[in-house]
């Protein structure tokens, strides 16, 4: 079983690389062969990935979100699943490349550093942990997707504005569609993030008898929450342009990346994955 799990763990980045490559062929060269197989290939990869996460959880007897690297691989899986859903809904396949580049690096990072073992701290066996982290991961994956659509929006915006009618212009869907995806994904991510923060507060109250800990990660999560709240308010009520919304959603995601990586590496607090 150990072998199977570590084998799958090695294969996943390769599969994601191949999927990314196929989507790139379709995006840049309109390769028919890629168009025919890439979605099926990505679905297969996601299926195998789900199986691997499931297996790891069962075999090592913990909810498979116990450390940073597990979080990264589940994030990669969640982004892929949400992307597949979007692709199915809007029937546009040209945006997959941008999403999958990120997914590939996420999975590569996870596969390279992940270590297996039992002995998860007791605190991470609580049902609160399961719901808190699941909500957070789903939120972060939706926000990642929002950021990717934000990048696409800015690229296309720049090319149209400066009359550069190259591959970005000819292959991406309209600015309006990109902006819509940018905002919809942000709303979805914001909702999950809200749930995660609330659950965290309740859990913290039960463990430490206080709703709020002055922990850097929590502070940053609250800042992120505020940024996205502003993004949504701005686009829905204040008539902000797609460009400003895209830019801010990218910034919000930058903060998330920072909190996920830098703090786990450099800070020592109760909230860090071990």
């Amino acid at each position: 079983m150990d072998f199977l799990i570590s084998f799958l763990n090695t294969v996943l980045p390769i599969l994601y690389f191949t999927a990314t490559y196929l989507y790139a062929l379709y995006f840049f060269r309109e390769e028919e062969f890629a168009a025919r197989y890439m979605t099926r290939f990505l679905r297969f990869t996601a299926g195998l990935h789900f199986f691997e996460v499931f297996l790891r959880g069962i075999y090592y007897r913990h909810y498979p979100l116990a450390n940073l690297y597990e979080a990264a691989t589940v994030l990669a899986l969640a982004i892929t699943l949400i992307y597949l859903y979007i692709e199915y809904r809007i029937q546009v396949k040209t945006t997959g490349y941008f999403i999958l580049v990120f997914v590939f690096f996420l999975q590569l990072f996870s596969s390279a550093f992940i270590s297996f073992g039992r002995g998860i701290p007791e605190i991470l066996q609580s049902p609160f942990f399961i719901f808190h982290t699941t909500a957070a991961i789903l939120g972060y994956s939706a926000l990642a997707i929002s950021a990717m659509y934000g990048i696409m929006y800015l690229l296309l915006f720049h090319d149209i504005k400066s009359s550069r009618f190259g591959v970005i212009y000819s292959r991406l869907p309209s600015l309006e569609v990109l902006s819509e995806m940018n905002i919809k994904a942000a709303i979805l991510g914001f909702s999950f993030l809200t749930v995660a923060i609330l659950l965290g507060g309740v859990w913290s109250y039960m463990l430490f008898d206080k709703l709020f800990n002055p922990d850097p990660k929590i502070i940053i999560a609250l800042i992120t929450w505020l940024v996205y709240g502003l993004v949504i308010l701005g686009s829905k009520k204040l008539g902000w342009t797609g460009k400003r919304v895209a830019f801010l959603s990218l910034m919000g995601f930058g903060i998330i990346l920072f909190s996920m990586i830098a703090m786990n590496l450099f800070l020592n607090s109760f909230h860090v994955f071990r």
Binding site: L156, Y169, L172, P173, S174, L175, E176, E180
Partner: peptide, 8 residues
């Protein structure tokens, strides 16, 4: 070009 800016 209009279709690259507007959806519909």
């Amino acid at each position: 070009l209009a279709h690259k800016i507007f959806k519909d």
